[in-house]
């Protein structure tokens, strides 16, 4: 057998056993997104007293120093001050409700997925997730998800109808965050 025929035979043997050519798999890149800070600051400056009260309470309770994206929270007078943690490029604010749990989660990066992923359906802000629901939005360039779960997710109206979570998303106010 000539070397070339031997190679062809080896390739033929290897070929059928290659269901997942891992070495060829493309690694998608993640990029930090640009925040539209003028827009975020203008929104904060024009905010209603309710929003300013939330920002003041948040500054006292947690502080926004070092959070490099606009922090959106629920109005403190209605929802109270959440427990809060941040990771420079991301944050989580946790609210405890009677029989339910609600978090506001923010971050500022995205995966460049052109050519790798295809959108087959419209992306709605509201989405059922089995044990609750998400409401997702992009504002000033940053990403936010309100994640709601219920102790009784199949019967609690807050988790099976969009009104409660959509209302919470509409009530979000700017509470801090800075470019530096």
């Amino acid at each position: 057998m000539t070397p070339h025929r031997l190679l062809a035979a080896l390739l033929a043997l290897a070929g059928p056993a290659l269901p997942l050519p891992a070495a060829a798999n493309e690694v998608l890149s993640r990029t930090e997104v640009a925040i539209d800070w003028p827009s975020a600051q203008a929104e904060a400056a024009a905010a209603a007293p309710q929003a300013r009260a939330t920002a003041d309470a948040f500054a006292q309770a947690a502080g926004a120093n070092g959070i490099r994206l606009p922090v959106l929270l629920l109005p403190v007078e209605e929802w109270g001050m959440p427990r809060f943690v941040h990771q420079t490029q991301a944050y989580a604010a946790a609210y405890r409700l009677e029989g339910a749990q609600l978090s506001v989660l923010g971050w500022r990066s995205a995966i460049e997925a052109s050519g790798a992923l295809t959108l087959h359906h419209d992306v709605q802000g509201y989405e059922s997730i089995g044990d609750g629901a998400d409401y997702s939005l992009v504002r000033h360039g940053a990403s936010y998800v309100l994640r709601l779960t219920c102790d009784e997710p199949l019967t609690d109206p807050r988790c099976i109808e969009p009104a409660f979570l959509s209302g919470a998303a509409a009530a979000l106010v700017s509470a801090g965050g800075s470019e530096k």
Partner: peptide
């Protein structure tokens, strides 16, 4: 980042 009745979320 989130602890529900049936799930947890890691951010």
């Amino acid at each position: 980042a989130h602890v529900g009745r049936f799930s947890i979320t890691l951010q």
